[in-house]
Design a protein around this nucleic acid. Structure first.
Lengths: 332, 332
DNA sequence: AATCGCTAGGAAATCGATTGCCTAGACGCT
DNA sequence: AGCGTCTAGGCAATCGATTTCCTAGCGATT
């Protein structure tokens, strides 16, 4: 609980002025090498760590960015966060994490806090239902939206290209010879559900095909997957593959279909979406899935934010391609 | 991109000195109510937000704590983080999040960064294998370990009482009339696995009972759960309940047992550990599980940290009780 | 009317690091 | 020997907010 060492103590020990000490430690100014070394040794000896507040007061830079997750920090924001941390850590920046929990009041409060702390930039992320209202206008710092996108097209957003993901999933199913493909997904009012469904329909259309049954909208849950399996089986639809809007739905389907005597992938092939480890590995057989590369999104968002901080802001929405990860559920 | 408003601009607009403006905004000093109001209105009008760096330089407080997760931020550290955020947010403190990714170098680097930023305190969390070495000695700020514990008994750690969790699980099974209880858990070298197993054994011993089979150690995965089911069935062990070291293991067991024709809970009752929503809800039937209340741990850790910051440090390890959440897998 | 006591608010130091400006002294050149 | 040049390093202002005096001015009291 010793109070902190200041640069003047280092300067005193090295027998120089504080200004000189500062220059020595920051590699600035014209100093004799031995002087520089003497100061560095003094700093080392005292365990000196510069006070970031004092430094940023002077320089105007804090080497800090704020990250606001609109929904509660969860499965989707974590990888984004990690990716951002990765990209920023290399630039020696720290992250202020704020969890707005879907509450606009909290969100504005956090925004204010971040501005008061003079962060160099802000990353906004959150569950992806649809484009969100900009978090603020005329802010004194750059903002990048990650995973979620801003309704203002001038804002910089980095999002997964979900239609691309659907395309890859469906093309994979076509490639293994399936033609009677069904699609089971989340709630119709959810942006991701509709865009993924549309992607599937479009991809099939390009091949002159259609979905084997109309898209089944429901919830993002295993229970719905099980239920949907029942629907598919009971209607007697002739289906040889199901592309699911999420891994959870796919897993529910897998369970129910297996129970009903269907063999996956022989009778029915399955593709999920999210590539969520516990789901794809826990599923029997292991589930082929679409990976949105959330870490990559976080990393890209952080890079764009850094660029904006350094004076080269990017605008508009950047959609990143998805990746298909084939596993046993589509292994022919 | 307007540069920030300073307190002297507010003071000028209100026709007072900066000192007076500061007092007005912070409710200090002796000012006429109308003066105070005038300053507040000026601040409002200009959108003034105090520069945290300048303030902390003066006051020595940053209203910021650092949170270092030793392993990559994951399933266990998130709830802890949320709980801490909750407790700290109420005190208007912000969190610096640092992900050390099991790398001691990163960890020390982050520690240094946090000290340079003059955080008021540090919370260390991470995957729980066993007590970890203290993150530093003689640090100028208080440190609290959450979920994981420090090897130094003088340090303050807040951890789940896993033996208590086991006791609750086993007593619940006893209460619904089961006597031939098996235990399937993770790797033997994992602290949580051994302590949970011991808790189960002790609880049974207190009733004059023993495990129906020796504890089955394996991995924390569904695959191991399925494999363990095979072992239990093939050895012909007469078992009417299985207490599992994790929800994933339990789910694997549930699947394999059901497939083998056993009815859960009629033939075999199941209890998991972690109360992980996607597992307990996805399991069929829904899984009874032990909840370690990770959010509560985060909250408690944050509270203890705040107490330490305010001069009342706590020492030693604080074990918090678990909670049993009964569901269909043990419903008689 | 003179003194005392208050109150409201101002002046200036302070926190710690950075940085532009300035100068002492060494060296070189004619 | 005298002058110019260059280098190493010191001085002091600065960032923005807080806080400790300190004082002007007003009212009350005897």
């Amino acid at each position: 609980m010793d109070r902190a060492v200041t640069i003047s103590q280092v300067a005193a020990l090295a027998g120089v002025s504080t200004g000189t000490a500062s220059k020595a430690l920051n590699g600035r100014g014209a100093l004799r090498p031995e002087t520089r070394l003497r100061v560095q040794q003094a700093a080392e000896q005292l365990g000196f760590v510069a006070n970031a507040a004092a430094r940023s007061l002077q320089t105007g830079r804090t080497y800090t960015v704020g990250m606001i997750t609109t929904d509660s920090i969860g499965r989707f924001s974590i990888p984004v966060l990690l990716g951002a941390e990765d990209a920023l850590g290399a630039g020696q920046m720290s992250i202020f994490l704020c969890d707005a929990r879907d509450d606009p009041i909290r969100e504005q409060y956090y925004l204010r806090t971040l501005l008061s702390r003079k962060v160099d930039g802000i990353i906004v992320t959150g569950r992806r239902t649809q484009a969100r209202a900009p978090i603020g206008v005329g802010l004194p710092v750059p903002v990048v939206y990650a995973f979620i996108s801003s309704a203002d097209p001038q804002d910089c957003s980095v999002v997964p290209d979900e239609a691309d993901g659907s395309r890859r999933a469906v093309q994979h199913l076509l490639a293994i010879g399936r033609r009677r493909i069904a699609h089971v997904t989340g709630p119709e009012h959810h942006h991701s559900a509709t865009i993924r469904a549309q992607g599937a329909v479009d991809t099939l259309a390009a091949e002159g095909l259609r979905l084997a049954t109309p898209t089944l909208y429901g919830e993002w849950s295993e229970a719905w997957g099980r239920q949907a399996a029942g629907i598919l089986l009971s209607t007697g639809a002739d289906v040889d593959a199901v592309f699911c809007g999420s891994d959870q739905i796919a897993r529910g389907l897998a369970e129910a279909l297996t129970k009903a005597g269907k063999v996956i992938p022989r009778d029915i092939a399955l593709v999920g979406f999210d590539n969520w480890d516990v789901m794809v590995d826990g599923c029997q057989p292991a589930l082929t899935s679409v990976d949105m590369d959330l870490e990559g999104i976080g990393r890209t968002a952080a890079e764009r934010l850094l660029a904006a901080i350094n004076g080269s802001p990017a605008h508009g929405q950047h959609a990143r391609p998805c990746r298909l990860v084939p596993r046993a559920s589509t292994a022919v």
